[in-house]
Design a binder for these strands. Structure first.
Lengths: 212, 212, 212, 212
DNA sequence: GATGAATGAGCTTTCATTCAT
DNA sequence: TATGAATGAAAGCTCATTCAT
């Protein structure tokens, strides 16, 4: 009964995270009280605090679960055997598609990141500076956000071949993952429709931006 | 005393908006109660409801005030007499600088837009679809968000000269205003430092992305 | 209308404190939720937080209101013109009577003081060490708890005449105020009945304990 | 294995009581949830309800365990062979020392007794009137609280020799156990330091209060 | 005996909004 | 216009107790 029990445990925790994700995507971070998460997930109000220390902890856990999923999904699409230009296109398209097919996750990420990003003095603090739970601490030990790992690997390969302009890595990131993310959001919102051919054109435009 | 009274009116309303902007940038949308806005602005709790119908109305008013400011600041930098490539560079740099020098406004915009953007069914609804007050209605009559006007004018000029790739306008927007916005954010957060030369390189990379 | 307003304001604050006192004496500190204080006092749940920062602040305010009352009541009974032995008896009886006629206040004081007194390491911390609000800070500026002031004045006069044994002041305090307090509690609880004559005998026994 | 099992049983029950005692002395009665007692004692949340009917029952059991300990400790110090004045001094000092060396027990007793003592109408009800479990019922069958037994034995001996003033027994109790208890508390809190000589002076002052 | 996940009523506190003055 | 005390629903969270295993 061991395995069964563990699955059951994991399922409840997962149900809570899933309920939170759906509700936040539907009603917004501000209009998602714990009571609603409790109702939707089928968990009692109290038990949520058995799995998560606080609402903040729940949200942080959800954040890192999504980041991890995204990282895995995108990383899986990278094939180091392929030629570099082809790899870049595949990666760009896989980012775009992940964003497009995960609107709830994208909605959550955007709300969460912007809610924890504020100005102090003449300084903007990102949520990475502000939230101090174990998850964030662990994450900060790595040098880059996990979902950019595949991209950074590719960027290093490009640089080795001297195919990349001399731009900061963050800028390269904005021209690829950033642009893909934002366009996928607009497509998901119906503000835009991009067919296969256009997508490839855009991927190519990104390439033009960063390639020497 | 008429004129004086009117100035006084405007000042109080402005003080409320300014207090809201500062507090939201400092503490976040979720942690900015009306009571704090009242304290910071020097206006009583009650009188805020004389100037604004509700908190939502106050936030929407602030949103449109900022959008207007931004539009004016960016538009002012566009000189139709200049050659097109030069115009593009100027515009890109002026967008970047506006974002960099207005961290409170950027913080507010990001929080506000993401808080009012949610998923229903398999559809992402932007806050433009959801908020229904007079301001939004007025805005929706125009075809594009005001701050992109100068960029769209330039894009049309570029297209007339056949200098622009055949990409949707929204994509062009992402490669310019979007990229500038996100990089300015990172610079403001101290995650990145971009010197004058690098900025011009990035503006050029944007141009490479969209120019034929 | 000024005076009227002020009285009205004070009345609501006072009503809250009075309701808290009654309920705590009736049901105990642990079984007196803010909701009950709100109901009994006729104040809404929210407005209590206009007058007091928190439940702790409310309790601390009540504590100092009672300490002040007690001090005034007991101090008023001391007549420096009287002979010293007579003054001691009067003071002792007035302490006893105050305790006896204010059972709610006594119940509250006992619960409050013991609830905030705990052991850390091999050290007992009194609530004076633990609570850190403005009231306590103010109180600690004085050298002795206010209700012992009259007693301390008398003790000094006795010492000047060399009528007092060479005992620490705290010990003198226990033999007078302390004993009176505890006996009044037992009388109020019906565990004991002390008539006038016996009371005078006890006051005399206290005198025997401390007088040379 | 019988004996072993019984020892095991007793140990777990004792561990729970000990954990409760420590936590209540450290954090206060109000801030000692069952979950903490469970953690500190190493017993699961559920099993506590095998040993105790409820939290109230656990607290009552702890109360009587402490009262019994105290009684035994103090009674052991009384030697009926000694002269009466000497016996009184020994008893007083042994009370004082027990209180001083058992700060957790004292903290618990004070909190427990005051939390269960409340005012109804113009009447103060002690916790003896209010708690109705078997322990209290048993206790009420005896005429006096157990820890005063040794003192009462001595008081009777004194009265037989006509050495005692004509004061109610409760008053005698206050002048001895009561005063010792309160002074030990203050010493434990560091508000006071009483050396051996002073302690004997105080024991003598108590004697002066009650002796004819 | 023993576990610890689960319950759900109840807690303190917050806050957008109203309204008598 | 302007005030700020007052409202009360709703928020996040706690905790004594139960019960399937």
């Amino acid at each position: 009964m061991r395995a069964g029990e563990k699955i059951h445990k994991g399922e409840k925790r997962e149900a809570i995270l899933q309920a939170a994700l759906e509700l936040i995507a539907e009603h917004g971070l501000q209009h998602t009280p714990m009571s609603l998460i409790s109702k939707r997930s089928g968990a009692s109000a109290g038990i949520i605090y058995h799995y998560f220390e606080s609402k903040d902890d729940l949200l942080a856990s959800l954040f890192y679960r999504i980041k991890g999923d995204m990282n895995r999904a995108i990383g899986a699409a990278d094939d180091p055997q392929q030629p570099l230009a082809k790899r870049f296109q595949s990666l760009w398209l896989s980012i775009f598609r992940y964003c497009l097919t995960h609107p709830q996750e994208m909605s959550f990420l955007e709300q969460y990141e912007s809610a924890y990003c504020m100005v102090q003095g003449d300084r903007t603090k990102t949520f990475y500076d502000m939230v101090e739970d174990k998850f964030h601490q662990e994450m900060l030990k790595g040098e880059v956000a996990p979902e950019t790992q595949a991209l950074y690997n590719l960027a290093n390969d490009l640089r080795r071949e001297d195919l990349l302009k001399d731009l900061p890595l963050e800028v390269v990131n904005e021209f690829t993952l950033g642009v893909a993310h934002r366009l996928a959001r607009q497509e998901a919102a119906g503000l835009l429709h991009l067919d296969e051919a256009t997508l490839k054109d855009i991927a190519r435009a990104c390439w033009d931006a960063i390639a020497r």
